[in-house]
Each structure stands twice: as structure tokens, then as C-alpha cells.
Computed example of a mutant assay.
Amino acid sequence: MKTNPGRFFEDYRVGETIRHAVPRTLLGGEKALYHALYPARHAVHSSDDFAARCGLAGPFDDLITFHTVFGKTVPDISLNAIANLGYAEGRWRRPVYPGDTLTATSEVIGLKQNSNGNSGVVWVRTTGRNQRSEAVLDYVRWVMVRKGDTGAPAPETVVPELSAVVAPETLSVPNGLTFDGYDFELAGEPHRWRDYTIGEKIDHVDRVTIEEAEHMMATRLWQNTAKVHFDATNREDGKRLIYGGHVISLARALSFNGLANVQLLAGLNGGSHAAPCFAGDTISAWSEVLDKVETGVPGVGALRLRLVAQKAEAEPFGLKGEDGKYAPGVLLDLDYWGLIPT
């Protein structure tokens, strides 16, 4: 058999390292397509001249790095996934620039068979590297994966202990980054790190309706081959599930309205895809400031932000009910660190 049916839950072993296939060289086309697919307007990633004034040489949007590395892992981790469940301990280590080639490896750090015996949860720690073998991104994610053989014995349960928050002192500030000559007018908003308060909530106002063609193009762009995103016969309802990263990028782009000066992503504390998303859904977003710290670089601060994407008809600022479950319409609950002028 020369074709690859993908791994099933019983095929993983704690401690194994998976070297993912097909390196990806990123060029200007990926940047242009990203801005065509999402209403992304953060100035550092929109203008090489603006980036140069901030000491950077026109880096890719940090989520291009995330999607590219994530896509490398799909054939080995989530080809037979039922759902991608969450993220933790993510760090953007260094910027990625046009001409860089990214590869990825993943270590299996946890396994737990579900009580139904038909599936289980796989935890992996993934690292993306450039052509110089320098880490550009690492993160933990956990995925619910089908069993190929329901009679296969359950593995020993190993659930990793994960940090709730990436320690701010471990965040990487890109070499050369400076906001000394930052142009707030060109960036789009006057709001600095000092203007935000812990507990503040921001309604990002704008909305985007997800189109089938756009999410299909995006998922192909990142070489994400998960069957639930492409094959309509893979779900009983006959729908293709929207890639969760597509929702992340839409929500991040919408957050420009209120968080235009949060130019770079530095840490991924946690994330949950709270409900499935399908073509035709209209997405809105809001953020909550969870914490704020100064970095070791003068003029560069970090905001810890909760970014929530929800269907447009959902109640604004609604997250969870009294039962602790996500409110109807909530699609994404993402907790991250972003860098902003102080």
C-alpha cells in the first residue's frame, strides 16, 4: 500500500518525535494572499517601510507562521481528527521573512482514550524551524482522533501538566524591535500600552461573513489536509468544517478596530474552539485585557488579551453560562500575549 490513510489514535506513542514532511518556502505571494483572505491591517505586516521604522525587515504576519507550521503537522496529527481541542504554551520565537523555509517536528506528550472506545485525545508539542534550524514557533495542542481499530487496547493514560500562562519574562521580543519612531497616525489608532486597563473589554464592532470559497482557499494555502475541511461526506450533516485557524485569523484581523497597535504576537497562553463554524456564519469579535507587563525592551509593552470570536447574533461580551459551558454562538476563546508601544 503506497497511499497514506493517516494515523489513528492507536498509532501514537508517548515520547515519539514525528518529523513532518514537505518544507515550505514562503514568499511575497503568501503575504498578499493572507491580506486578500482576511481584513488584516496591522501596519508592521502591511508596510515594509513601517516595519523598517520599527527595526524589522518586513516580517510575515505571525499567524502566517502559525498556519504554515500547523499545516505541516496535519497529515501526521489530525488527518483523522474529529476536532482540534485546544492550545497552550505557545511562543513566537523570531520573525519569519520572505524567502524563509519552514519545517516542523512534533513530540507526542500525552494520550487518553475516550470512554466510548472509538477515539482518544493526543497531545503534541510542535516546533517550527527556519532553514537555519532556528525555532520560529513552538506550541502544544491537543486533538481528538478516531481509532482505526476500535478493538485496539487503550494506551496508558498520560495527561501533560501545562502552564495556564506563558510567563511574560520568557516572551521573545524580536531583535532590533523599536517603537521609538512609531507613527500612531499611520498605524491607525493613538492607543498605547498605558491606555489599556486590566479588565477592560473592547467590542471590535466589525463583522465578516465566512464564504465557502475563501475558507477552502485558505486551508489549501496552509496545506492543511484534514478531511473534515475538504470532504463533505466526512460529516453526517454533509458540511465542511471551517478550519479553526481561519477563525483565529478573522478574529485577529477584526481586533484591529480597538487594538491596532498590538503589532506582534508573542505568546499563546491557551485557546479553545468552542463550537463548529461553517460557511455562511457571520463572525464578530471582542477582546478583554487580562494582564499587562513591560518587557525588557524600552518602549515595548505586552498585553495579555482574551480574543473571543462569536456568531454575530450572539450576545456581546457573553462567554460562559452559570454551568461553565460556553454561551451559544461562541466559536473561539483565545488567550495570547501581544506587543505594543508603551
Score class of each variant (00 low, 15 high):
residue 225 T to G: 09
residue 218 A to D: 10
residue 247 V to W: 01
residue 225 T to R: 12
residue 245 G to K: 00
residue 209 T to S: 10
residue 222 W to G: 05
residue 232 A to K: 10
residue 226 A to M: 12
residue 225 T to K: 10
residue 227 K to G: 09
residue 235 R to P: 03
residue 220 R to L: 10
residue 242 I to T: 15
residue 229 H to I: 00
residue 210 I to V: 14
residue 226 A to D: 09
residue 250 L to H: 02
residue 218 A to K: 01
residue 244 G to S: 03
residue 232 A to P: 09
residue 223 Q to N: 14
residue 228 V to L: 15
residue 210 I to S: 07
residue 237 D to M: 03
residue 215 H to F: 14
residue 214 E to D: 15
residue 214 E to Y: 09
residue 248 I to Q: 11
residue 246 H to F: 15
residue 215 H to C: 13
residue 202 I to W: 06
residue 221 L to F: 12
residue 228 V to F: 07
residue 222 W to T: 14
residue 243 Y to H: 15
residue 240 R to V: 05
residue 225 T to E: 13
residue 204 H to G: 03
residue 246 H to S: 08
residue 230 F to D: 12
residue 246 H to V: 05
residue 238 G to R: 03
residue 239 K to S: 12
residue 210 I to M: 07
residue 217 M to C: 11
residue 228 V to A: 11
residue 237 D to I: 00
residue 202 I to N: 06
residue 242 I to S: 13
residue 231 D to T: 05
residue 240 R to C: 14
residue 238 G to W: 06
residue 248 I to C: 08
residue 235 R to M: 11
residue 221 L to I: 03
residue 230 F to Q: 12
residue 220 R to D: 15
residue 208 V to R: 01
residue 247 V to L: 11
residue 212 E to G: 02
residue 229 H to R: 05
residue 236 E to P: 09
residue 224 N to L: 04
residue 223 Q to V: 07
residue 232 A to M: 08
residue 221 L to R: 05
residue 244 G to Y: 04
residue 248 I to H: 07
residue 241 L to I: 14
residue 220 R to Y: 06
residue 247 V to T: 15
residue 209 T to D: 00
residue 205 V to N: 04
residue 234 N to I: 03
residue 218 A to N: 09
